[in-house]
Simulated scan of single mutants.
Amino acid sequence: MNDGGPLVFDGHNDVLSKLFRAGGMAQIDGFLTGRDGAIDLPKARAGGFGGGFFAVYVPSPMDRAFRMSEMDKPSYDLPLPESVEWEDALPVAVAQVAILLEMERRGALVVCRTVADIRAAMDAGKMAAIFHIEGAEAIDADLHMLDVFHAAGLRSIGPVWSRPTIFGHGVPFRFPSGPDTGDGLTDLGLRLVRRCNELGIMLDLSHLNEAGFWDVARQSSAPLVASHSNVHAICPHSRNLTDRQLAAIAESRGLVGLNFAVAFLREDGRMAADVPLSQVMRHLDHLIGILGEDGVALGSDYDGAVVPEDLTTVAGLPKLKQAMKEHGYGDDLIRKLCHENWLRVLEATWRA
């Protein structure tokens, strides 16, 4: 099915937490040979998936079936899960990092620490992986674990996954709603921003509430990035970005990765997969209109969300590239959206 077009480098997936919950190391064989999920090596080869951000995420005990059923209603306001203590989060995070490193040892992917690493992996036909943390519960107040994880390859972090951390506050899963839902970063959160700037770790604004977004915008010296977020003007979900936020990201020469999660694509905010690719293009058009052709990329949320029927796995990515072409996007723009824009913003953020 691979169309031979540009490889896709993607801003967010939840493969690691999904493998962890399914049995951990024993699940790596399925990633190599084929598994019941959105991303594995055979599907990646079929769909031209070159790699992306592999998130380390500590699950909440919220009933997934309950969340899915609530988000299929005309409006909803799911309660935020309780905070996860550092002592509980750390072993889960370490176990997922171990899965990532074992996947590299077995040839499933290459953990990349520089943009040169990403280009070399994709040129060699290997999956390029960025070690990302979604929700900083595993980082202690002294930030010692930030340095330890950075030494292990961490190059991107989101201070929160919706639930509060010692660093800040996230948005609830609420529709309709704006992202202005509470307090911003704590003093520890501001310290985290400064230390990430020093280390060259990308700060991910997806899941942060609006107050936290503006705190990062004021404090950070790096381009602003939301790895998997969409347009609030089209879908008024708390997880999506307002035009004012998008303009701030554009001013910083940052980037937004388009999220495939259907609840953030649909105008009605429902968790229903019957979303045409024309709706995806509406979000891309709006993002490009504010951020420009260099400020938009993809951030699928594969293996962590319900996605459009045409894009159920990475094997379907050629359909999205074809939709871009039929929509009138030229080859240069499609290449930027597929991977070059991610490499540009990472080059401006990371330190060698």
Rank of each mutant, 00 (worst) to 15 (best):
F260L: 14
A261N: 10
R244V: 11
F9V: 06
L188I: 05
D294E: 15
G24F: 06
A211M: 07
C235P: 07
P236V: 09
G178D: 09
A124W: 04
R45A: 13
L7W: 14
S69D: 07
L188T: 06
I133F: 09
Q279V: 15
W342H: 08
P176F: 03
A152I: 11
L343Q: 09
E347N: 12
V296K: 04
P61G: 01
S227E: 07
L154E: 00
V111L: 14
L80K: 09
A26G: 10
L277Y: 00
G330M: 00
D29C: 07
A95E: 10
G178N: 03
R270V: 08
L317D: 01
V345Y: 04
R113I: 00
Y329N: 11
G4F: 10
A120Q: 13
C112F: 06
C338H: 00
E326N: 13
E137N: 13
W86Q: 06
G48V: 09
Y329P: 08
L78F: 03
E293P: 02
K336I: 02
A124T: 00
G269H: 06
L317K: 01
G52R: 02
M281P: 02
I290S: 05
M122V: 13
R351Y: 07
A129D: 01
H237N: 14
Y302C: 05
E85Y: 01
G212I: 08
R105P: 02
V94T: 08
S83T: 13
D29T: 14
F53L: 15
G295F: 12
R64I: 11
F54L: 08
A305E: 05
D117V: 12
M1R: 12
G200E: 10
Q27E: 15
R163N: 08
P318K: 12
S220R: 03
A151P: 06
G299W: 07
P223Y: 07
M68S: 03
H228A: 11
A93T: 13
P176W: 04
V97Q: 04
H150K: 02
S221L: 14
K321D: 00
Q322V: 10
F173M: 13
R270E: 10
R174A: 06
A46M: 10
S177Q: 04
D63W: 02
E70C: 08
G11A: 12
A108D: 00
C338R: 03
T33E: 13
I139E: 05
D215N: 13
E87S: 12
K336Q: 09
A65H: 05
H339W: 15
A26S: 15
G330P: 06
A38T: 03
C235V: 09
G182Q: 08
G295D: 11
L317V: 09
N240T: 11
F167M: 04
M71T: 12
A128S: 07
L154S: 05
R163D: 00
D3I: 12
P6E: 09
T165Q: 05
F49M: 05
F9T: 06
L203C: 05
A273F: 12
D140M: 01
I166G: 02
H286Q: 11
G107W: 04
L265Q: 08
V56S: 01
S227W: 03
Q219R: 15
D268M: 05
A297V: 13
W161N: 03
L333C: 10
V115G: 08
A152G: 00
F213C: 10
A263W: 08
R266T: 07
G158R: 00
P74W: 01
L41T: 04
D274H: 12
L277D: 04
K43G: 04
L203R: 04
